[in-house]
């Protein structure tokens, strides 16, 4: 009985985090962007500084007509938002936020997380292909190209940490973390974060969406709840990326004074803020420039980090 209860509590807490954190990040994006741009952002919904804006948006999305274009491949079209959302939910279950505080502590957590995150991109390729719209198609193709080039630096950077800790378990990595890993793994951390941004298709790497070129890319034909699911996937993605970066490179729950989970949340919040900040201040890269950045910028840096990690490991042991 206690075991069943334990599992239920874990599932419930992941669900709560899954539903709550993206909303907080989304609301923070509204407000942070607004204040950076000399405006106020939402002010009315819910009364106090528009705190309920995203809930209101959700209600609106639910009331909207669910349109599937005649030219669309119905099944794939309907499935795509789910495919892009669910992987992030699964990933969330594997991320530890405190010692022992993890829904599913896997021995190969890192491997699992990276593998599952890659699936999310399939959703946008499916959406782009099935919409029967030229803009969506271009968006889907751009997504595919982006995934291909950014998976590699992402994995290389992550494997450097795994090498340093000598384990693939996310909890194990955080346990092994020392403060001096910060400078040691800094280059890898930057590569991981940038590659993660590109995988999430967040600005400045949002050319699959690029509203001024491709309207909304693979999401062009989506309305109502399905569109909302895509948006939700984007914000869950931010949370997941920030949490993973915190776990792998910033020491997860390590930190003075405050309790572990609080430190973890603080780190996630700070990284999410950086994600928002980048959106406010950068134009969008072109697709070929992005590929160039990945192949001649990030991959060599990640390889260099890997070599450095190996070198230091050999010297210490």
């Amino acid at each position: 009985m206690a075991e069943v209860l334990d599992v239920l509590v874990r599932i419930a807490s992941v669900m709560v985090a899954f539903l709550l954190l993206p909303l907080i990040v989304g609301q923070a994006e509204h407000k942070v962007m607004a204040h950076m741009q000399a405006r106020l952002g939402p002010m009315y919904a819910g009364g106090f500084h528009g705190w309920a804006q995203l809930i209101a948006d959700g209600v609106k999305f639910m009331q909207k007509e669910d349109i599937i274009p005649r030219a669309a491949d119905r099944r794939v079209f309907a499935l795509a938002p789910g495919v892009s959302l669910v992987p992030y939910l699964v990933v969330m279950a594997a991320i530890p936020i405190g010692p022992g505080l993890v829904a599913a502590d896997l021995d190969v957590g890192l491997f699992f997380v990276l593998a599952v995150m890659g699936v999310g991109v399939l959703g946008s390729i499916m959406a782009g292909w099935s919409s029967g719209n030229k803009y969506s198609l271009l968006g889907g193709m751009r997504s595919a190209a982006q995934l291909m080039s950014y998976e590699l630096p992402l994995v290389l950077a992550a494997s450097s940490v795994a090498m340093a800790a000598g384990t693939l378990s996310l909890s194990g990595i955080v346990d092994a973390w020392q403060w001096w890993w910060l400078p040691w793994q800094a280059a890898g951390g930057v590569v991981f974060f940038i590659a993660g941004l590109a995988e999430l298709r967040r600005p400045p790497f949002d050319m699959p969406i690029a509203e001024s070129e491709l309207i909304m890319g693979h999401m062009t034909e989506y309305t109502g709840m399905r569109f909302a699911l895509f948006m939700l996937a984007e914000y869950v993605g931010i949370v997941v990326l920030s949490a993973l970066t915190a776990v792998l490179f910033l020491g997860g729950w390590h930190g003075p004074l405050l309790p572990g989970p609080v430190w973890m949340l603080v780190k996630v919040a700070l990284l999410s803020f950086v994600v928002i900040w980048l959106r406010v201040s950068y134009p969008r890269l072109r697709e070929d420039q992005l590929q160039k950045l990945a192949w001649i910028g990030l991959v060599p840096v990640a390889l260099g980090q890997l070599a450095l990690t190996g070198l230091v490991k050999v010297l210490i042991v």
Binding site: R39, A210, S212, R284
Partner: peptide, 13 residues
């Protein structure tokens, strides 16, 4: 013009 290149902030300024 920056908005077309994906930079949203200059528009508001």
């Amino acid at each position: 013009y920056p908005l077309e290149l994906g930079a949203i902030t200059p528009m508001f300024y």
